[in-house]
Design a protein around this nucleic acid. Structure first.
Length: 594
RNA sequence: GGGCGCGUAGCACAGCUGGAUAAUGCGUCGGCCUCCUAAGCCGAAGAUCGCGGGUUCGAAUCCUGCCGCGCCCGCCA
C-alpha cells in the first residue's frame, strides 16, 4: 500500500501545484477509501475550499480532470468532494505475484529484525485451574506474541511466577495440614470436582486452597491459622529457602496443570521468572534503598515507607507504599525490581493485565520513571462476566477453560459428523480439536480488550461467519484446490509468476479484484494491530481476507472443465499462504480439510 | 466521594490518527448445491451512534456536563 500511496502523492503534488497548493499538509489526509466502490485511496478536498475559494466538489472534479490514469492507477474519480484513486487490478496482481507483499511467519523462526520485544502475560497465581476470565489474559497475550512475530519482531514470552505471596502460602499451609477427607468435608456443600479432571493437579489442589480459605474466615482456629500463614509469608520474603521449597512443592504441580490447559490452546512461554529471585538476589532491598533516597519519599509512623506520587501528578490516592512497617517488601516493590530486570533483557516491554491492575501498574510505571527507567506498554482488558453476574470461584460461578474446551470439541465433532459422513472418527476428533480450540481463542480476541463481555455458551460455541471456523474453512478450500491441481499434475511450486499472463485482468472479476485489494492492505492492518497492541484489528482483517477469498472462489474457477487457470491458481496459493500465516498469528490451527 | 474505562439496530459487536450512504455476525424474511468442500454465497427489513452543550467547512470519533454500567481507591497479591 505504501507504494500506491507514494505514487498517488507524486501525481497529486503536480496536480495541486497547478491549483496553487504547494505545501505538503494534504499528504496525511490521503486515506484508504471508505467507499470501496469508489477507490483504494481518497483525498477529501474540503480543507482546500477556503484557500481556493472554491467548492470542494469543484476542486475534486478539477483534480480528477487533471490526473490521467496510468499503469498503476486505473481510475481517478471525484464524488461529493472526494478525489478517489483506484489501483489497477493488473498492477495489484503483479505486485502480489512478484512477492512484494510480505506473507510473514508467526512461528518466530525468522525474525526480520524490526525490534525485540519482551511480552509478559498470564502470570496467574498458581493456585487453581484457569477459568474463562483468567484465560483472557493468556489468549490476548499469546496472540500479541504471535502477531509481533508475524510482523517480524523478535519476541520473548515471559511468565512471572508468583511463588512467594499469601496465595501460595495458603495453598502450602493447606497441603501440609489438611487431609483429603477433611478438605471434602469442608467443601461438602460445593460442586465436586468434575471426574474428568480428577488427575489434573490444578483441579485437585485448588480444593485445598478453597478449603483453607473457608477455614481462614470461619474456623474457630482462624487466628492461629492466619498466624501460621503469615509467618510463612514473612519467612519467604526473607528468602528462607526451606519455606520457598515448600511453596514450590505446593504450587509447581498446579502450575503444570494450568500450563497443560494453555498448551492445548497452543499457548507457551519462553521463560518463567520467579518473583522470589529478586528478593534472594538483593535487588529488592537495593531498590528500596534507592526509593528511600528520593525527594518524594515519605515515612509513616510505624516506619513504613512510601512515595508521594501526587507530587508527580497522580490523582486519587497518592501514597504508594513500597516498604512495610517491619521493613519487608510489597508485591509492587518486587514488581519494580522485575521490570528493571526485564528492561535489561529488552528495550521494549509489553504487559498484559486485567483492568483491576490499572492503578498498581500506573504506580509502578511512575516509580520506574523516578528511577530513571522507561515504563512498559500495558494492554489492559476488562473482565468476562457470566449471565448470572461476576465470575467467582467462591460461589462456584465459573466456567473452567478445561470444560469449555471439551464442550467446544464435542460440539465441533457433532457438526463434522453431520456434514462429513465419510470421515473416520479419528479424523473427526482431530478436526474437532482444532476447530474447538481455535474457536475459543478467536471468540475472545475478536472483541476489543477494553470491552467487558458476557460469556454465553451459545456464542462461545458459535461457528458462524464471525468465527475461527469461517477462516479455517476458507483456508481448507485453498488446500482442496491445490490438491485438485496436483491431481492434474501441476506442481504449484514450479510455477514462475513472471510467466503468468495478466491480460485477462483487463476485465477483472469482482471477487478477484476484492481479494487483490484485501491482500494488498493486509500488512498495513497487521502493523497497526501490532503497534497499537490491538489483536482484534488483525482478527477482523483475517475475517475480511477469508471473506474476500470466498468471493474469489465464487467468481473465479481455478479448475474448470478439466483446465487449470494458472493465474487464479497462483493467486489462490498466495491467499492460502497468507491465510495460513495469519491463522498461526492468531493461534488458529490450519487444517488440510475439515 | 475520587480516579480510570465502557455505553453504536431485538441481541452481540466493528469503526473512534475527525471526513462520503455507520461495517459485520446472530436472529427475522427471501433466493442459490447435475459446477474446485453450502462450516459457503446472494438479496431484504432493521440505527434519534446513552442524553445535553461546545470546537470544526465537517463529530459515532475531539472537549465538556449529566445519566447508566464495570474496575480500582489495602503497610493484600
Amino acid at each position: 500500500m505504501e507504494l500506491l500511496r507514494s505514487h498517488v502523492e507524486h501525481l497529486l503534488t503536480a496536480a495541486l501545484a497547478n491549483l496553487g497548493i504547494t505545501n505538503d499538509a494534504w499528504k496525511p489526509m490521503i486515506s484508504p477509501s471508505r467507499e470501496k466502490e469508489m477507490g483504494d485511496l481518497s483525498l477529501p478536498c474540503f480543507a482546500f475550499s477556503k484557500q481556493l475559494s472554491m467548492a470542494p466538489q469543484e476542486i475534486s472534479a478539477q483534480l480528477a480532470q487533471s490526473i490521467s490514469p496510468d499503469q498503476i492507477i486505473s481510475e481517478v474519480n471525484s464524488t461529493s468532494g472526494y478525489l478517489n484513486f483506484k489501483a489497477s487490478p493488473a498492477w495489484l496482481a503483479n505486485q502480489i505475484l512478484a512477492g512484494n507483499i510480505r506473507i510473514g511467519d508467526a512461528t518466530g523462526k525468522s525474525p526480520t529484525g524490526h525490534k525485540s520485544v519482551l511480552i509478559e502475560h498470564t502470570s496467574a497465581n498458581p493456585n487453581g485451574p484457569f477459568h474463562v476470565g483468567r484465560a483472557r489474559n493468556a489468549i490476548l497475550g499469546d496472540t500479541l506474541v504471535r502477531l509481533n512475530r508475524l510482523h517480524g519482531n523478535e519476541v520473548r514470552a515471559e511468565y512471572y511466577v508468583d511463588d512467594m505471596g499469601k496465595q501460595v502460602a495458603v495453598l502450602a499451609w493447606a497441603l501440609e495440614h489438611l487431609t483429603a477427607a477433611r478438605v471434602e468435608e469442608i467443601l461438602a456443600d460445593r460442586e465436586p470436582v468434575n471426574p474428568e479432571w480428577q488427575d489434573k493437579p490444578d483441579h485437585m489442589r485448588v480444593r485445598w486452597y478453597q478449603a483453607a480459605q473457608v477455614l481462614r474466615s470461619d474456623d474457630a482456629e482462624k487466628e492461629s491459622i492466619e498466624q501460621a500463614i503469615s509467618s510463612m509469608v514473612h519467612a519467604s520474603e526473607n528468602g528462607d529457602q526451606g519455606v520457598l521449597d515448600a511453596f514450590e512443592n505446593a504450587y509447581q504441580p498446579v502450575l503444570d496443570g494450568m500450563l497443560e490447559t494453555l498448551n492445548r490452546l497452543r499457548i507457551g512461554f519462553d521463560e518463567f521468572t520467579k518473583e522470589s529471585i529478586f528478593v534472594t538476589n538483593g535487588d529488592v532491598s537495593a531498590i528500596m534503598n534507592q526509593l528511600s533516597d528520593l525527594e518524594i519519599h515519605g515515612i509513616a509512623e510505624n516506619g513504613a515507607e512510601y512515595l508521594d506520587l501526587g507530587a508527580r501528578g497522580l490523582k486519587g490516592k497518592t501514597e504508594f507504599y513500597f516498604k512495610r512497617g517491619d521493613g519487608s517488601s510489597l508485591y509492587a516493590t518486587r514488581d519494580i525490581a522485575y521490570h528493571i530486570w526485564k528492561f535489561q533483557q529488552s528495550e521494549n516491554l509489553i504487559n498484559v493485565l486485567g483492568e483491576d491492575h490499572k492503578l498498581q501498574s500506573k504506580q509502578v510505571s511512575m516509580t520506574l520513571n523516578e528511577l530513571g527507567q522507561n515504563s512498559p506498554e500495558v494492554l489492559f482488558y476488562s473482565f468476562i462476566k457470566l449471565p448470572e453476574g461476576k465470575m467467582s470461584t467462591r460461589k462456584g460461578n465459573v466456567v473452567f477453560m478445561d470444560d469449555l474446551l471439551e464442550e467446544a470439541k464435542a460440539f465441533a465433532a457433532n457438526v463434522v459428523r453431520e456434514i462429513r459422513v465419510d470421515y473416520s472418527e479419528e479424523m473427526i476428533a482431530e478436526i474437532a480439536e482444532a476447530v474447538g480450540t481455535s474457536a475459543v481463542r478467536f471468540n475472545i480476541i475478536k472483541v476489543s480488550p477494553d470491552k467487558g463481555f458476557t460469556f454465553r455458551w451459545e456464542e462461545a460455541l458459535s461457528f458462524d461467519s464471525d468465527s475461527a471456523p469461517f477462516i479455517m474453512y476458507s483456508h481448507t478450500r485453498t488446500k482442496s484446490i491445490a490438491r485438485k491441481c496436483a491431481a492434474f499434475g501441476i506442481e504449484i511450486d514450479t510455477i514462475n509468476p513472471n510467466e503468468i499472463s495478466l491480460e485477462s485482468l483487463d476485465d477483472c472479476p469482482n471477487g478477484l479484484y476484492n481479494l487483490l485489494r484485501t491482500i494488498t492492505i493486509h500488512n498495513d492492518v497487521l502493523r497497526r494491530s501490532v503497534e497499537q497492541n490491538r489483536p482484534n484489528l488483525f482478527a477482523n482483517q483475517m475475517l475480511n481476507l477469508a471473506n474476500s477469498y470466498n468471493g474469489f472462489y465464487r467468481d473465479c474457477k481455478v479448475v474448470e472443465d478439466g483446465e487449470v487457470d494458472l493465474l487464479y491458481l497462483a493467486i489462490s496459493e498466495i491467499a492460502s499462504k497468507m491465510l495460513e500465516a495469519g491463522m498461526i498469528g492468531l493461534g488458529i490451527q490450519p487444517l488440510e480439510q475439515m
